[in-house]
């Protein structure tokens, strides 16, 4: 996969996809049709509070995320963004308030990808991805699903290898395949590209955008990289001391041009909100 994979995968004539209408919008070229479309889950958060002892991490947070939206959460470290994500996928329980994640399908499934790939080193790439399918043997049917997920992240021919021979970016792609193989309605990404080098990161951003476009799940990306948030998300919120201090829509058409003036202006606004205007040295 080259650095420019995103550009070739996303045809330039396909412009912005209306988020609210879910999967009815235009499709990206180069995305296998067999992937199917799972509707995204809508998220409604009311008065969410999380405290660890005396420390208030999330403070009466209200947030509504429409189904299929790509939301990015940015903020300084310790602002509560990772905690929000863990609460969203049920890894932690809130101190007060409610989180409602619902979708049209019967069972809403959420998956999280961490900064570390967290692959089982003693299982092959294929077996690792099959973890995402839950309990059970690797039947031919499951194997096919796994192969599809691996194809989606461009690692189809690495199925039988051990994770230890893969590069950092490849491991993270396996982790992504593991999260995607069960077609979740909510995909939570906790700084998934934080440990990767700059070039791999750009490739991976393109991959995440493409996968989101193809599957249509609601995606929440927690990141400290403002330009990444602006490049990928429909909407970016800034968290500070457990509250949303800025909530903006990114209306730039996809595929987005890196370093365009519009995006740069948005980045500036976000950084101002994160640091306060006075702190930022331009």
């Amino acid at each position: 996969m080259t650095v420019f994979a995103r550009v070739s995968a996303v045809g330039p004539q396909e412009t912005r996809r209306p988020v609210e209408t879910g999967r009815a919008g235009p499709t990206l070229r180069g995305v296998p049709a067999s992937l199917g479309t799972s509707a995204g889950a809508a998220i409604t958060i009311c008065g969410l509070e999380k405290r660890f002892g005396d420390k208030v991490v999330l403070d009466k947070l209200d947030l509504t995320v429409p189904a299929g939206q790509f939301l990015a959460v940015v903020g300084r470290s310790g602002c509560g963004k990772s905690t929000l994500l863990r609460l969203l996928v049920g890894l932690d329980t809130p101190t007060a308030g409610t989180i409602d994640v619902s979708s049209s399908s019967v069972a809403t499934q959420s998956r999280i990808v961490f900064q570390e790939p967290r692959l089982l080193p003693w299982e092959t790439v294929e077996q690792n991805v099959s973890v995402g399918l839950g309990e059970g043997r690797l039947t031919p049917e499951r194997r096919e699903k796994v192969a599809l997920a691996l194809a989606e992240v461009g690692l189809k021919d690495r199925a039988t290898e051990w994770p230890s021979v893969l590069s950092g970016g490849q491991k993270q792609r396996v982790a992504l395949a593991r999260a995607l193989v069960s077609h979740p309605q909510l995909l939570a990404l906790d700084e998934p590209l934080g440990a990767l080098d700059a070039l791999t990161r750009i490739t991976m951003q393109g991959l995440i955008e493409r996968v989101w476009f193809a599957q249509g799940m609601t995606t929440v990306l927690v990141t400290h990289d403002v330009s990444e948030a602006v490049a990928l998300a429909d909407r970016v919120i800034v968290l500070d001391a457990g509250r949303v201090t800025l909530d903006i829509d990114v209306k730039a058409p996809r595929p987005r041009e890196r370093g365009s003036a519009d995006l740069a202006a948005l980045e500036g606004r976000l950084l101002d909100a994160i640091f306060g205007v006075a702190d930022v040295v331009y």
């Binding site: 996928v89 890894l91 089982l120 003693w122 973890v131 839950g134 309990e135």
Partner: peptide, 23 residues
């Protein structure tokens, strides 16, 4: 971190032992 991953992916205690802890 692997144990947490196993829990998130809904592994039963036995599966967690067999696929994560023992290996």
């Amino acid at each position: 971190q692997l144990v947490e991953m196993g829990r998130i992916y809904g592994m039963s205690r036995w599966t967690l032992f067999r696929r994560v802890i023992l290996p």
